[in-house]
Write a protein that binds this DNA or RNA. Sequence first.
DNA 1: ACAAGAAGCGGACCCTCGGTCCGTATCGTA
DNA 2: TACGATACGGACCGAGGGTCCGCTTCTTGT
Lengths: 207, 207
Amino acid sequence: MPVPEPVPESAPDRKPRKDATRNRAAALVAADRLFAHCESPESVTMADIAAAAGVGKATLFRAFGDRTGLIHALYAARLEPVARAIDEGPPPLGPGTPPLLRVPALLDAVLCFKLDNRHLALALEGIGGDSPYQAEHYRRWHGTLRAVLERIPGLTGADFTAHALLAAVRADLVEHLAGRQGLPRERMRADLTAFTAKVLSEGAASS
Amino acid sequence: MPVPEPVPESAPDRKPRKDATRNRAAALVAADRLFAHCESPESVTMADIAAAAGVGKATLFRAFGDRTGLIHALYAARLEPVARAIDEGPPPLGPGTPPLLRVPALLDAVLCFKLDNRHLALALEGIGGDSPYQAEHYRRWHGTLRAVLERIPGLTGADFTAHALLAAVRADLVEHLAGRQGLPRERMRADLTAFTAKVLSEGAASS
DNA sequence: ACAAGAAGCGGACCCTCGGTCCGTATCGTA
DNA sequence: TACGATACGGACCGAGGGTCCGCTTCTTGT
């Protein structure tokens, strides 16, 4: 039977309806507020978010798939400016920066981002079950950092080094030091920068 | 009224009944097996453990308080030999070791422990809600490592450095590299040792 | 402008899982 | 052996993620 499908080609999804996009945005805003004010990320339930957004629970799941998807979407929205600054911004974050300068800048950017979005980052990394290492965002950070590290002459094991450096800015560690122990922001940034410098110091320790 | 309590002193708990200790042991054995064979730590439920141990669920909770307590007990049992080797064993792990040698030895020990008890460590650190940084075990590792680092002349920021180094052997990172990406054990140990050396190289880089 | 049908809505509902309750069985002891 | 204390265990509960389905709202062809 010649089913007259118009265009079943590679774009099976048409643009969503107006109310759908509006609800999606409302959900993101509500979730953002809830995560920002909550005590711990898991005290924010999907039902809470739905209620705060004035929306049914099913709408959340339709829009984001599951809780993980919602958190990812939130995270991506917050992260976007930082990601742009890294991909196409000016030094010291952007591409045209000497590796020995760019590595500490990248890590400082990650640290500041997590300090500014503590609960959200905590929610993302604290998702039980699948580790944060399978998340798209992590692969991106790691890929970028590794690429920069590989351009440093004399430095070996760039892949593991990138993992280890990123581990130093894990959300729960940041939360523990900055939140629980009250370590001041600038102190933590300084500590991280000093640590990074130590890691990079071997071989090319000139300045 | 002269209540003739024999010894109500600082030990209000008498020794447990025979079946209680037996059941506790059975639970630990069963849980150990389940965690060792499972796909992901949260696929092991308390009901599973109870069934595998041939015991009622309530018995588990009576013996360990909650799921966290059970995992902690398991972890502690596994960790005990390593902890003894660190506290009172021979070099290079034990106390009488020069700091520059002991730090990599400590980290290697942690890494090997997590490689050998991957699922268990993953279960412990992956406990949603409270971060691993509030766990007794972590404070111990961190305290020990920091103390050793502080004895290295010229090294600053021992506290943060200890956190950062321990972050490099987080259970989920180990699982990601060794388990998911198939990185060989010896390769990972070498990478970690090289990274540690870099961190320690500044200032006292003589040998 | 209007009707038809697709897309979306929402809250009642289900399921799993950690944790508790309480009647019953077992242990330790006089 | 008898009696109190302790432990047992499975039915039960509440919370939270995720789904179902009858109803509403948007879009589009004419």
